Simulated assay, not measured.
Amino acid sequence: MKDYQIEVTLTTSKKQKPAFNKLEFGRTFTDHMFIMDYTEGKGWHDARIVPYQSLTLDPAAVIFHYGQTVFEGLKAYLTKDEQVFLFRPNKNFERMNRSSERLCMPGIDEDFALEALKKLISIDRDWIPNIEGTSLYVRPFIISTEAHLGVSPSLTYSFIIILSPVGAYYKEGINPVKIAVETEYVRAVAGGTGNAKTAGNYAAGLKAQEVSNEIGYSQVLWLDGKERKYIEEVGSMNIFFKINGEIITPALNGSILEGVTRDSIINLLKHWNMPIIERKISMDEIFEAYKSGLLEEAFGTGTAAVISPVGELFWRNEKLSINNGETGVISKKLYETLTGIQNGTLPDPFGWRVIVE
């Protein structure tokens, strides 16, 4: 780890905290934030924790025009004995560096990023909600800041971490969500930026998300951009299907985000000696399994929601009700186990928890 120093400036005017039993996702932010700058030829410098504040950027900053940015999402949890844990943060910072490489952005020192995050969380520790199902959401991101309208990588960047106390991502909570299969729009293709966590991927999905919301569906299930038949991922989650006792998830193919929760679920299933397969799977195969009664469960996985059972798929004007629209046994067990490991109520046989203090 490089020997960076972190300058700390504490706020003189603390915010009023929201009611932790009425939290919305990503609407409220803590008192402080972390910032570090990058300059070509100098590297990363001026690491600091400061009061949460607006940013000042030149109107010609590269981020505004060419979207050169990456971000991550992870959570901090407060245990019943008042310990604070992060869940596999090293995986997030590793993925951030992979995303940065794809976007021609400088990598960060992963060990230092974790130490900076721990220090920020320790300062804003009293913002971590203590109600079941809540957590402190962590959003690290890097933006390109050079004022330059030429189409080329920026020469300056800012690495920022902000924190937000959150409740459930979906208003349904652990109850099944309804998802529409997207057949018109495309989010990503192999060779593009689909396996990088960058803003443009999410902007590309907003129109389909808006259309699905209008017809009563909370998320979009994306198909591959080439043949429009193979399942890829949900807008904010990876996806799993239980068909005739076998659990299947789309194989990583260059256009699917390598989810940390996805990897954790695969490891859990293998730990339980359950059949889990990563492979290409088409909507036609899902439909046939549904018609034959072999489609037993479906669920999404992601940091924000953890596990979201899928109660219904909408495809080609047909409603596919999965497990009678109820939470499946495997979905429930995975949710309870993973959240138990995260919040410290269950043992952690994998060494995934990282203590903050």
Rank of each mutant, 00 (worst) to 15 (best):
G340C: 10
L334E: 03
R279S: 07
T337N: 14
L338F: 14
T301H: 02
L334Q: 01
K280F: 10
Y290S: 13
K333S: 14
L295Y: 08
G311N: 04
G293F: 07
R316A: 12
N343W: 09
D348F: 02
R279K: 14
L268I: 15
S282F: 00
N323A: 11
G325E: 05
E297S: 03
V354W: 00
E326L: 12
W272T: 05
S292P: 11
L295K: 09
E288N: 04
N267C: 00
W352Y: 08
I341S: 03
T339S: 13
W352H: 01
V354C: 05
I307Y: 07
E296L: 10
E285W: 10
T303Q: 01
Q342D: 04
T345Q: 11
T303V: 00
S321D: 11
W315A: 12
V310S: 11
T303H: 06
Q342N: 07
E296R: 13
G325W: 06
T303Y: 00
L294I: 06
L346C: 13
G311E: 02
H271G: 00
G344A: 03
Q342T: 01
I276Y: 00
E318V: 05
E285Y: 06
R353Q: 02
R353G: 00
V329Q: 14
N317I: 11
P275A: 13
T337M: 13
Y335S: 07
D284W: 12
S321G: 00
L334F: 00
G328H: 12
K333W: 10
W315D: 08
V310R: 06
P349D: 09
V310F: 11
S282K: 03
P349S: 06
V329S: 14
T327C: 13
G293T: 09
N273H: 11
F287R: 15
V354K: 03
I286Q: 10
P309I: 03
P347Y: 02
I286A: 08
K291A: 12
F314M: 09
K280P: 10
E297D: 11
T327G: 12
